[in-house]
Computed example of a mutant assay.
Amino acid sequence: MVNHYGEQTASGHLHVPSESKEPYSAEVLERLSAEAEQVVARYPQPRSALLPLLHLVQSVDGYVTGRGIDFCARTLGLTTAEVSGVATFYTQYKRHPNGDYTVGVCTNTLCAVMGGDQIWETVSEHLGIGHDETTEDGKITLERIECNAACDYAPVVMTNWEFFDNQTPESTVRLVDDLRSGVPVAPTRGPSRVCTFTQVSRVLAGFPDGLADEGVGAGAASLRGLEVARREGWTAPGEGGDAQTATAATGTTAEGMAAGEQTSVDTPANAPDERPTSDGTEADK
């Protein structure tokens, strides 16, 4: 099967290459079916296994191919339209050949202010590719990410969903150059190395690689708030805290609490409105 890297098409890669619909070899199909059986067995309803199965076929083909869609549909008793609808909804599933390393640059508000926009522009120009495009050597797929969920280390870049914290345009250019040249690369936090896209897809399918417990998960910046709370003796309402503690946590005064003032902590956001009306009946829900 030929991999065609390059710029996005007008359809945004919604249509897979025709060669991706070629059937699996007997050997690959036998192994894939055996592993799919293990995945499906974890769920009370077979269709619930669709997400990990899509990762599984992606770990074999490097993206969600036409034959991968057919395989998932047959395995789970779904239509190909149902499977395709899921595969085109989530950005971790690729409908076109993906690089060995997906480099995601966060350009959401905080990272952008801290330099994420400049990182994106520099790396995009350096590689000669844009969002969701892949270098000609098939090594790097570049993505503009809305949020990497690591604002305390902004600006953040991820490579196959491993964290590279406090980045600069220069450090990110070095990162992609090292990845393309085969130099071993270790993330800021987590395992001792960055795995390839297909290896990570296999992990997401539910087959551990033994690296989950390596390295630091939450760094010093992530734990700063917890350290301050412990030092000051702050606790959450309902965990032994007094009115003053609750005030610090919720902004509600002690007098207001004594008078029955409601807070977002007490009342779920989706709770129905059951305030009594002037005639003593409940208001419309």
Rank of each mutant, 00 (worst) to 15 (best):
F163R: 12
F163S: 06
V156Q: 04
T172V: 15
A149T: 11
T168H: 10
A149E: 14
G182L: 10
D177P: 01
T172Y: 07
R180M: 10
N148Q: 06
D165S: 09
D165N: 14
R144V: 15
A150K: 14
E170G: 11
N148K: 01
G182N: 08
A186C: 11
D177E: 15
R144G: 07
E162T: 12
D152T: 12
V157L: 08
S171W: 02
E162C: 05
A150F: 06
V176A: 03
A149S: 14
V157K: 03
M158E: 11
R144W: 04
R174Y: 01
Y153K: 10
A186N: 09
S181Q: 15
E170I: 01
V185C: 06
Y153T: 03
R144M: 15
T141K: 08
D165M: 10
V185S: 05
Y153G: 07
N160T: 05
N160L: 05
L179E: 11
C151D: 14
E162S: 14
T141N: 06
S171T: 15
A150S: 14
D178K: 02
D178Q: 12
L175K: 08
T172I: 11
A150H: 12
F163C: 11
F163E: 15
V157T: 14
L175Y: 02
V183G: 01
G182C: 09
V157S: 06
D178C: 04
D152Q: 15
T172N: 06
P187W: 08
C151P: 09
T172S: 13
D165W: 04
L179N: 13
E143P: 00
E170W: 03
P184A: 12
V156D: 07
C151G: 05
V185M: 10
D165Y: 05
S171I: 02
V157W: 01
D152M: 13
P169V: 01
P187G: 10
A154R: 13
Y153V: 01
A186V: 13
R174V: 07
C147Q: 11
L142V: 11
T141G: 07
S181D: 08
A150V: 03
P155G: 08
A150P: 00
R144K: 15
Y153L: 05
D177F: 00
V156R: 03
C147W: 00
E146G: 13
N160Y: 03
V157G: 08
C151V: 08
P187I: 10
L175A: 13
V176K: 05
D165T: 11
R144E: 14
R180K: 14
E162N: 15
P169G: 02
W161A: 14
E146V: 07
N160E: 04
V156A: 04
V176H: 07
E146S: 08
A154P: 08
V173D: 03
Y153A: 04
N166I: 03
A186K: 15
Y153S: 02
E170L: 09
A149P: 00
